[in-house]
């Protein structure tokens, strides 16, 4: 990013914040204090996460999956082979006794205590200070131990040559493991959202900073019952679900 671009973003951010502060004093002011400007280093001040409202999420809708595949350059298909990578998938649930149905997207849950990071022999699987769990494609040796360890099947190995479907902003590679990055390139650019959250027509996916008590996501989590998938494992996931 050149200096002008940085300046423009900071200026816009500042202008918007001022405008916002004028309209909605308390709430927005806190948020401005916490959201991250592009030139600010990643820090544990933030903990990015998603809140997924399963009551809004529709069976058969795949908009979030399509958006993720476009944003990150992995190939979406009608019918996948078991070897195809999938960064995000829609899971359909039917309750065994009541028959109640739910539909919801599952992706890397960006665990605070990520098993994938614990087991990785090289440290390629790592967690950023702001809670985003990533794979460093330069030192991943493709041992797949992280895939064995992840309770959510969030990771995929790239099984074959990519024939340059990949995008410059999201390097991928045959023989390496990959998964949802929480659109870190968008977060780092100050977009303050993810491709899936932007794409959802029902606004079922809410992106935000769990550490910021004033953010919408933190307030919704404080005010409503929500759950982590496999909460029994105590991983303190960054992705939460309501309505199930």
């Amino acid at each position: 990013m050149n200096n002008f671009e940085q300046y423009r973003r900071r200026f816009l951010g500042g202008a918007l914040a001022t405008a916002g502060a004028a309209v909605m004093p308390g709430l927005v002011l806190v948020e401005v204090a916490h959201s991250r400007a592009p030139d600010e280093p990643v820090s544990s001040k933030n903990r990015w996460g998603l809140l997924i409202d399963t009551t809004k999420c529709a069976t058969g809708c795949n908009e979030c999956v399509t958006a993720c595949s476009k944003e990150n350059g992995w190939t979406q298909k009608e019918v996948y082979s078991p070897q195809d990578p999938q960064w995000i998938r829609k899971v359909e649930l039917t309750h065994n006794s009541t028959g109640a149905k739910h539909s919801l997207p599952v992706m890397c849950q960006h665990c605070e205590e990520p098993p994938c990071v614990d087991v990785c022999p090289t440290g390629a699987s790592f967690k950023r200070d702001d809670g985003i769990v990533l794979v460093d494609r330069h030192i991943c040796i493709g041992c797949r131990y992280c895939m064995m360890a992840c309770p959510y099947k969030a990771r995929s190995l790239v099984h074959e040559d990519l024939n340059d479907t990949q995008l410059a902003r999201m390097p991928r590679g045959k023989g390496c493991v990959e998964s949802c990055t929480l659109c870190m390139h968008k977060i780092d650019a100050g977009d303050n959202t993810t491709a899936c959250a932007e794409a959802c027509p029902e606004h079922a996916i809410l992106f935000g900073d769990l550490n910021d008590a004033g953010s919408e996501i933190a307030q919704r989590l404080a005010g409503h019952a929500s759950r982590e998938i496999r909460a029994d494992l105590g991983l303190n996931t960054g992705v939460r679900y309501t309505g199930i």
């Binding site: 614990d118 087991v119 022999p121 090289t122 440290g123 040796i141 023989g175």
Partner: peptide, 25 residues
């Protein structure tokens, strides 16, 4: 069998103390 067998040697210097794989090396 590694996805990137050419990089196996990385385990020799990029050691992750919490990884059972690293201990095994």
């Amino acid at each position: 069998d590694l996805g990137r067998a050419d990089r196996a040697i990385i385990t020799a210097w990029e050691v992750n103390p919490t990884s059972v794989f690293s201990w095994n090396v």
